[in-house]
């Protein structure tokens, strides 16, 4: 059973059994209360943990605004550390891609798009497949007004990242023996720093 956490958009926490069924989940689309809700959400979801214990933690690694994103990743690190269980990292867009394909919405090539602030969008291009859609172009930033999906690509812009399919993605990655990703945010932007010389005051 995996515990999945994503705070790349709102906050989503889910407990998913090895057969893929959702044991418990909590989520909110609120993009400003990650630190506030992560505790209660984890407590609620982990309360559904019965005799079958959590064997791993999954964290979404974005893309998403870094401050909120780090709340979930830090929490995932802490739970994995506290329980002595592995931590798996999954690009957050993969969760959306999986649910689009699972629900029969997306086929062929498609794009998952999320807002990246500063008039940019984060885009990942997939090719529909299960259990895990194939990543054609990993997450990257594009100015919103310039971005148009390529030929034959349908774009799906979302404002929420569900946690349960994040666990599905982790199961698929593990089953396929894919290389583990680092459990840290996809930093698509360098930190804002200004190196200004002292200004004259007189």
């Amino acid at each position: 059973m995996l515990l999945a956490i994503d705070t790349s958009a709102g906050t989503a926490v889910a407990l998913v059994a090895d057969d893929g069924s959702v044991v418990a989940e909590r989520s909110t689309a609120d993009i400003r209360r990650h630190a506030e809700v992560i505790g209660p959400f984890l407590a609620d979801v982990l309360a559904a943990e019965g005799d079958v214990r959590v064997t791993g933690v999954v964290t979404g690694i974005g893309p998403g605004p870094y401050t909120g994103l780090r709340v979930g990743i830090a929490a995932a690190h802490a739970v994995a550390f506290a329980r002595g269980i592995p931590l798996h990292a999954v690009p957050s867009h993969d969760a959306v891609a999986i649910s689009l394909v699972e629900d029969g919405v997306a086929a062929g090539r498609f794009a998952v798009v999320t807002d990246a602030r500063r008039r940019e969008v984060a885009v990942t291009i997939y090719s529909a497949a299960l259990p895990l859609p194939r990543t054609v172009e990993p997450a990257h930033l594009v100015p919103r007004i310039e971005w148009v999906p390529g030929d034959g690509i349908t774009a799906y812009e979302v404002t929420e990242i569900p946690a349960a399919p994040l666990a599905h993605a982790a199961y698929a990655r593990i089953a396929a023996g894919m290389t583990a990703l680092a459990p840290r945010p996809l930093y698509l932007r360098a930190p804002d720093v200004t190196l200004s010389a002292p200004k004259r005051v007189s």
Partner: peptide, 23 residues
């Protein structure tokens, strides 16, 4: 610093919940 604080708060809350300890 908000972004810095949130890392500690996220980790601490999760640690407390996972260990079932007061926070």
């Amino acid at each position: 610093l908000a972004g810095a604080l949130m890392v500690g708060v996220g980790a601490a809350k999760a640690l407390a919940v996972a260990l079932d300890k007061p926070f």
